[in-house]
Amino acid sequence: MFDTIKKFLPILLSLLFVIACGGFDGPQSTFDTHGPVAKEQADLFYLILWAGMVVLVAVELAIIYIYIKFRRKKNSTRIPSQTHGNTKLEIMWTILPAIFLAIVSVPVLSAIWTIGTPPKNPDVVVNVHGHQYWFEFEYQDLDVVTANELHIPVGKKILINLYSNNVLHSFWIPKIAGKTDIIPNQGNYMWIQGDDVGMYYGQCAEFCGESHALMRFRVVVDTDEDFRAWISHQKSEAFVPNDPLEKSGYDIFMSSKAGCGGCHMINGSKKAKGKIGPNLTHFGSRQHMAAGILENNQVNLRNWIRNPDMIKPGNIMSGQAAVYMDPNKSLTESEVIALASYLQSLK
């Protein structure tokens, strides 16, 4: 009897999991959908989940029944009838699953085409570039380049082109759309649509190196006006700050000793033209930094500038920038504070 209870226990626990889990949806839940693509995918998931549950419960019940009914009694010498099979039964349990699969394949195939066919006239086209370990967003025809925070207008169809000049990545916004891999020399694409205004989490889903776990981003779904306002703001150039602290930060940033401009772009500046790192023109307007892993505030920013490798091991800046490689060029504490103030002023 105790054995029987033990047999039931994991199944009961499994059921408990399902019930217990049902209530909480995290920020990357694929169940809490906010776009047509994710919705289609979740619907399909539920379809096969329930169908699978029926099979699972039926077979596990059969196993438990067998366990109770046909277990050997002590010292039994019974020789059961030596059946070698039953053709009718076997044909049945070959054909029935085949029919079942044929039926479910209809919604599956239709979903493949819905999701796999890009909109003919997308409202916005974004070229996503995967880097180690951050995402760059280039708005085609809008002349805006930003990083780690993707703004899209609500209810519009967005075409995403996926590019990489390094390793593989995968672009994934669980609440809005399933992932598509970013592959060098292969222009992949996907389409997304956000149905509700808000901020959504995204994460790289293909192993891309040491800090793969820290390659995240946010998607901000704006109202139409907000989106247009955001775009026009992003198009504007950055100004030289007036505040003395911010100005000194500006000077350090543009100096050849620090060499920030070799990798980072600040629109409107002649010295910051780099394309290796994120475009920082409106860095201060972003809510998160370092590929969506930290809130964008003075403390985090200073820590980041002081030692990026502590926060994101293996990132290219700490491995290549002179201020981190050459002890003679390393930043003083006051320089760190000035740089952080300058960067945050770039609203």
Binding site: Q41, I48, V108, A111, I115, P174, A177, K179, T180, A205
Partner: peptide, 11 residues
């Protein structure tokens, strides 16, 4: 189901 596998792949 490749369409819904887009959500499961690599998770």
């Amino acid at each position: 189901f490749s369409a819904s596998d887009y959500q499961q792949q690599d998770t």
